Amino acid sequence: MYLDAFHDTQDGLTRITAQQGSRFAKEIAGDFNPIHNPGAKRFVVPGDLLFSLVLERYGLSECMAFSFTDMVGADTDLDFPDTDAPSFEIADATGRVCLKVRREGRRTRDMSLLERFTLAYVSFSGQTFPHVLVPLMRAHDVMINPQRPLVIYEGMSFDLEDLDIREPELELENSSLMVNGKRGDVSLDFVIRAGGRAVGTGAKKLVLSGLRPYDDATMQALVDQYAESKAANRRSGMKDEG
Rank of each mutant, 00 (worst) to 15 (best):
D82Y: 01
D110C: 10
R148Q: 13
F88A: 04
F129C: 11
Q147L: 13
T76I: 08
Q147D: 15
V44G: 02
G126H: 01
I90L: 11
C63M: 01
N145K: 04
D84W: 00
V97W: 01
Y58E: 04
L50C: 06
G39M: 12
R96E: 14
A74M: 09
E161S: 11
L50P: 07
R102V: 02
A85K: 09
I144L: 07
T128Q: 11
A40Y: 13
P38F: 13
E115F: 01
D84V: 07
R106M: 12
V72F: 13
V54R: 06
F66R: 04
P168V: 09
P146E: 00
R107N: 14
A74W: 01
G73F: 07
P168F: 12
R102A: 08
V134L: 02
S112I: 10
T76F: 02
D75P: 07
Y58Q: 03
D92R: 02
D159V: 11
Y153F: 15
E154H: 11
R57A: 15
M64H: 06
F124G: 09
I144K: 02
F68W: 14
A74N: 03
L53K: 03
A139C: 05
F43A: 09
A85P: 02
R107K: 14
M111F: 04
S123N: 08
P38Q: 13
H36Y: 07
M111H: 14
G126F: 00
D79E: 13
Y153T: 01
G73Q: 06
Y121S: 04
M111E: 15
H131S: 14
D141A: 15
P46F: 00
S61D: 05
P46N: 08
P46Y: 00
G126S: 11
A74H: 09
I152N: 01
G73W: 04
G126T: 06
Q127F: 10
K100T: 12
F158P: 10
F158G: 10
D77W: 10
V101I: 15
D141V: 08
R148F: 09
T69N: 02
E115Q: 14
C98I: 12
P146I: 02
